[in-house]
Structures are given as structure tokens and as C-alpha cells.
């Protein structure tokens, strides 16, 4: 058991190190190599972290969806922990998305927020995962609560394609830079900055999902061991 744990710790440390190196490289390329955009100016550089934040929110939400479906099919600690870890990652990166977007908009549009379809659906998505976490934090950790949260995790995932296609289907003001038709980044250094941003966020999200899932599983096992100890009269209920 101990060598397995050490191997897991080593892989986690390796992922964190890789993520730190990639973040450093991204910051270097964003600030020292990528050119300043012609019309928006320097504020466009928010884009290199804003878009990967949104993508990371999708990764977290997808993990939450997989964990939720897995839990409903075969209830166990692993699926439940994955669902919860995914929701936490989705809220964390969704918050980054919702903070960086308005700061860019303040310069590009002249105001921080508008009820544009993509902005509204992204906010709704983050609120769904906040509801998931509030439910898990305050409604106990019983079988019923876990199943209800799993259902919420699936509903949250249903909103993801709506966020993605809202720009194409409903218009609005939000730009669509990464599309199959037009748009895009003209400078190779801009592409490199975005590519590195995606790589850094991906590795970081994998590390966080892994660590949170393991931590959550440990917590569940510990709670059961504590309950056994209470049943055997080894410790007090409130200890």
C-alpha cells in the first residue's frame, strides 16, 4: 500500500511541476513574445488565460458528469469523489472565467457585463456547480444526498453545449475567435501563447482533479472508520 501511495504522490508532484513550468513558459510568451493586438491593445492578453479558464471549467464539469453517471450506475466512493472534485474544479475555473471576461469587456465593450447568451449561460453553469457544492457541504453525506448531487452534476453538464454553441446560434456580443469559419490568431506567437495556456491549464486541472478525488476518498474512508470506532465505543460521537 505504501509504495503505491508514494508512486501516486510522485506522479502528483510531477504533474504540479510540469504545470508550474508550463505556466512560467506561458507567462513568458504572453508578456514578452506575443504581440499587442491592433485594435484592443494590451488588454487582449487576458484572452490567453480567459479561454483556457473556460476550457478548464468544461474539463471539471466533464469530470463531474462522468463521476455522477458512474455513481448512479455503480454507487461507490470513487465516482462520488470524482463528481465532487469535478464540481469544485468547475467552480474554480468558472470563477476565473467570470472574473477575467468582464475585465476584458470593460475595455473592449465599455462595460463589464451584459446579458449576452454566452455570458448568461456560463454564469448559469457556474451557479449549478455552486449549488452542487452547497448541497454536498450542508445536506450531509448520505446515499440520498449523493444521488441527488449526481443528478445535479448531470444537469450541469447538459448546459455545456448550450454555452459553447450560444455564440453561433443566438448571436450576442461575445466574440468567437476559435471557430472553423474565420476569426483566429494571425501571429504565430499568439498561437503559441494560447497553446501553452491550454497545456498549462490541462496539466493543472488533471493534478487538481487527482488530488481532490484522492482527498475526498480518504475523507469518506476516514468517516466510515470513525463511525466504526464510535460503534465499538472507542471514541465519542462528537470527537
Amino acid at each position: 500500500m505504501a509504495p503505491k501511495r508514494h508512486a501516486a504522490d510522485f506522479v502528483f508532484s510531477l504533474l504540479l511541476l510540469a504545470s508550474a513550468v508550463l505556466y512560467a513558459a506561458t507567462l513568458h510568451v504572453v508578456f514578452f513574445r506575443a504581440p499587442i493586438e491592433k485594435t484592443m491593445g494590451i488588454v487582449q492578453k487576458i484572452f490567453y488565460f480567459h479561454v483556457p479558464s473556460g476550457y478548464s471549467m468544461y474539463l471539471g464539469a466533464t469530470a463531474c458528469f462522468i463521476g455522477s453517471v458512474g455513481y448512479l450506475i455503480r454507487p461507490n466512493d470513487l465516482w462520488d469523489a470524482l463528481g465532487r472534485a469535478g464540481a469544485e474544479v468547475a467552480v474554480t475555473f468558472g470563477t476565473m472565467l467570470l472574473v477575467t471576461g468582464p475585465l476584458w469587456a470593460a475595455k473592449a465593450w465599455g462595460y463589464y457585463w451584459t446579458w449576452d447568451p454566452r455570458l448568461t449561460t456560463a454564469l448559469l453553469s457556474v451557479l449549478i456547480y455552486v449549488a452542487y457544492l452547497v448541497l454536498r457541504a450542508f445536506a450531509g453525506d448520505g446515499e440520498g444526498e449523493r444521488r441527488f448531487a449526481a443528478a445535479l452534476g448531470i444537469i450541469g453538464a447538459a448546459n455545456l453545449p448550450i454555452i459553447h454553441f450560444s455564440v453561433q446560434k443566438w448571436g450576442g456580443q461575445h466574440p468567437a475567435v476559435i471557430t472553423g469559419k474565420g476569426g483566429g490568431l494571425h501571429s504565430p506567437d499568439m498561437k503559441l501563447a494560447l497553446g501553452l495556456g491550454f497545456a498549462a491549464f490541462t496539466v493543472f486541472v488533471i493534478a487538481l482533479l487527482w488530488a481532490r478525488t484522492r482527498l475526498q476518498m480518504m475523507q469518506s474512508r476516514l468517516a466510515r472508520a470513525e463511525q466504526d470506532a464510535v460503534d465499538l465505543d472507542l471514541i465519542q460521537e462528537d470527537a
Binding site: 484592443m40 494590451i42 488588454v43 474554480t92 476565473m96 477575467t100 475585465l103 475595455k107
Partner: peptide
């Protein structure tokens, strides 16, 4: 608003959240 200031604010918020 200054673009530089907004950019710095965005990056500070990202690191605070992380």
C-alpha cells in the same frame, strides 16, 4: 480604463483564485 491595469487585475484575480 487603462488596459494595463485591467490586465494586471485579471492576472492577480486568477492567481488569488488558484
Amino acid at each position: 480604463r487603462s488596459g494595463e491595469q485591467l490586465l494586471v487585475e485579471a492576472y492577480i484575480f486568477i492567481w488569488i483564485i488558484a
